[in-house]
């Protein structure tokens, strides 16, 4: 056991295997509290795979094996004794494609808190979560309507609100804007910047400008390895490694 209170989440030599194939190769990194950390890299460099390891979403895929450790609070979430359900309650996830439940907007928000018996004033919870996700004004008069009737950007903000309703510490976002138009993307980016005050955010993105606009730190991944990481300004202005430079300048990927 070690205390890693300085970080919200700390990977130590974390590897992910698909069968015998080592997809994520010993990534070590401390994700700082209340910061937005962007994970960038060319397609197939296992960004999503790494992200899904952060809240044990690989548990449902039998052929995936994990090595190394991932520290949250003072606990390794891959320890035998760790409870994956508790982990996922504290580390929320927003997916690439908006995936609201085919239920009403209100039910989408309260679904998680209800099944986890986080008994609360649900009306208030719905309002505060939607407000924090900057969606309240658009949907306050139609809370009972199907979530599927919302636009793509609204659906994605609903999914963010749904995560927020669980009162997580960390929110993982895997290319949350890739299915959205520029206007919705802008509103989500704005939202992420405000969420930083309360949550730690890890975001995968393909969009260099986006990474630059919203992140505090950047991780550059290539072929399963963490090539370079650092402060966003520094990574974009003068990366230490040539590969990073080439990728950021759009020479490959």
């Amino acid at each position: 056991m070690r205390l890693s209170y300085s970080y919200a989440l700390e990977a130590k030599a974390l590897s992910v295997f698909y069968g015998d194939n080592k997809a994520v190769d010993e990534v070590s990194y401390g994700f700082k509290r209340n910061k937005v950390t962007a994970i960038i890299g060319p397609s197939g460099c296992v960004k999503s795979t790494l992200m899904r390891a952060m809240n044990r979403m690989h548990d449902f895929v039998p052929e995936v094996k994990i090595e190394g450790s991932l520290w949250y609070e003072s606990e390794d979430i891959y320890d035998q004794r760790a409870n994956p359900v508790l982990v996922r309650k504290k580390i929320g996830m927003v997916f690439q494609k908006p995936n609201p439940f085919p239920k009403s907007i209100a039910k989408n928000i309260v679904w998680g808190p209800k099944i986890n018996r986080m008994s609360k004033n649900y009306k208030e919870l719905i309002e505060s979560s939607l407000k924090r996700a900057a969606l309240w004004d658009e949907v306050k008069h139609r809370l009972e309507e199907s979530a599927l009737s919302l636009s793509g950007g609204q659906q994605q903000r609903l999914c963010i609100a749904r995560s927020i309703a669980m009162d997580p510490d960390i929110i993982l976002m895997d290319e949350p804007c890739s299915a959205l138009d520029p206007k919705s993307t802008a509103s989500i980016e704005e939202l992420i910047l405000t969420l930083r005050e309360k949550y730690t955010i890890l975001i995968v993105t393909h969009n260099m400008q986006q990474a630059r606009r919203i992140s505090d730190e950047v991780l550059f991944m290539y072929e399963g390895r963490l090539v370079e990481s650092g402060d966003t300004e520094q990574m974009f202005e003068n990366p230490r490694i040539g590969q990073t430079h080439d990728y950021i300048r759009g020479k490959f990927g």
């Binding site: 979403m57 508790l86 309650k89 996830m93 995936n99 439940f101 679904w111 099944i115 986890n116």
Partner: peptide
Amino acid sequence: SIREASFALGAQKWQVVLFVVLPA
């Protein structure tokens, strides 16, 4: 995608099956 959404909200398997998969 909606199964994953429910797991990510801290649901257990039986809850996902009973409250998400079957209704859908």
